[in-house]
Design a protein around this nucleic acid. Structure first.
Lengths: 193, 193
DNA sequence: CGGAATCTTGAAAGTGTTCAAATCAAGTGG
DNA sequence: CCACTTGATTTGAACACTTTCAAGATTCCG
């Protein structure tokens, strides 16, 4: 249950047996069935979630009712509305399960306890956040400089498994185009080979 | 010289007199004249820069030679090619001064020393990085859900000073549109009032 | 099997780009 | 201070890409 999390953390810092036990106590496992919500816009995001299995997504709904997927989180990744989690403000993201999933939840109070009792975890979260920052800048760069087709090809490379498992309309939403456009792009690509 | 940095850090953590002195030793002040580079694509990013005054930008150049501005950094912000800084790989970003600027540079080795001698700084950088992550996700969301005009209006709100001081073509590059399009958007907006 | 999503396709409309030319602005050297 | 060069901005017209709207095909699942 916790082994993926242990590996994930110990890729960045080393934990003692005791610290590992302490860590486990801070997390709450939760199963989330496909299409069920972990967080809804307007609520306060009470926890950050480490994905053990399955896949979740964070998305916003614009003034016209269109969904825009900010992030997918497959296993070994984290997902949350960080701003809401940190400040206690109302969430602007919805988070739901794209597939049946299993997550480990870390509440604000638990994270505080954890950070105080295992100071090394400050370092872990710093490193994690740095990596997140790098990848979101990568995504910003793609949205500025790559065409829809290039972004789709990049998506396939980054999430080869997801491409098979989620509706195309969600990939389109992540890429910032309509499902119709993605359908046409795929048609184009299939002609090319 | 260091007072802005002190305020910046002490907004998040508290430092003793001694720690503050230690901190100062880790940073190297540097003046950068307008259009001069702090980092060029292909080099290794040796430091992260805290902006004391002026403004810098990080941008990529695509295969067609077009510039895409990933980030502006005005005073009280940081700028770097974080991926290159962390991993030692070749930078994919160029960083140059949009105006005459003054920065405080923190080298990798200095940061390491600092993090080891003042463990609280782990916490500082974690908090900083979390804030960065939140704002880059905000930008991703804008690029997915806002029109060019909306993004421009949001830009004006976020960087009211910059709008006066930098060429429009750079704002356009940041927004992901051509200078011509921005010119037309501005014309539209001026008609509206 | 039947109903509900999802995906595909076509045609028209929209948004932004491209290319080219004109205008405007700022800085330099005489 | 003016003429000149250079870069930035504006504008127009044609073009390209993406969306929108609508309809038909396909897939999924109870």
């Amino acid at each position: 249950m916790y082994s993926l999390l242990h590996t994930h953390i110990e890729r960045r810092i080393h934990l003692s047996q005791k610290e590992r036990a302490l860590l486990d106590q801070c997390f709450t496992p939760k199963k989330i069935r496909k299409h069920k919500f972990l967080l809804q816009e307007g609520d306060v995001c009470r926890h950050i979630a480490f994905v053990n299995s399955g896949c979740l997504r964070a998305y916003t709904v614009d003034h016209r009712g269109e969904e825009h997927i900010i992030q997918f989180a497959i296993e070994d990744w984290w997902i949350s509305d960080l701003n809401s989690f940190l400040t206690g403000s109302a969430a602007t993201y919805n988070i739901d399960a794209v597939q049946d999933s299993e997550v480990l939840l870390l509440e604000r109070a638990s994270r505080k306890t954890l950070l105080e009792s295992v100071p090394k975890m400050e370092r872990f979260f710093r490193l994690l956040q740095e990596a997140n920052y790098v990848s979101s800048h990568q995504r910003i760069n793609d949205s500025l400089s790559a065409s829809a087709e290039e972004r789709y090809l990049a998506f396939i490379k980054t999430y080869p498994l997801l491409v098979e498992q989620i509706p195309q309309s969600q990939i389109a939403s992540y890429l910032g185009i309509t499902p119709q456009s993605l359908s046409r792009i795929r048609k184009e690509l299939s002609h090319k080979r």
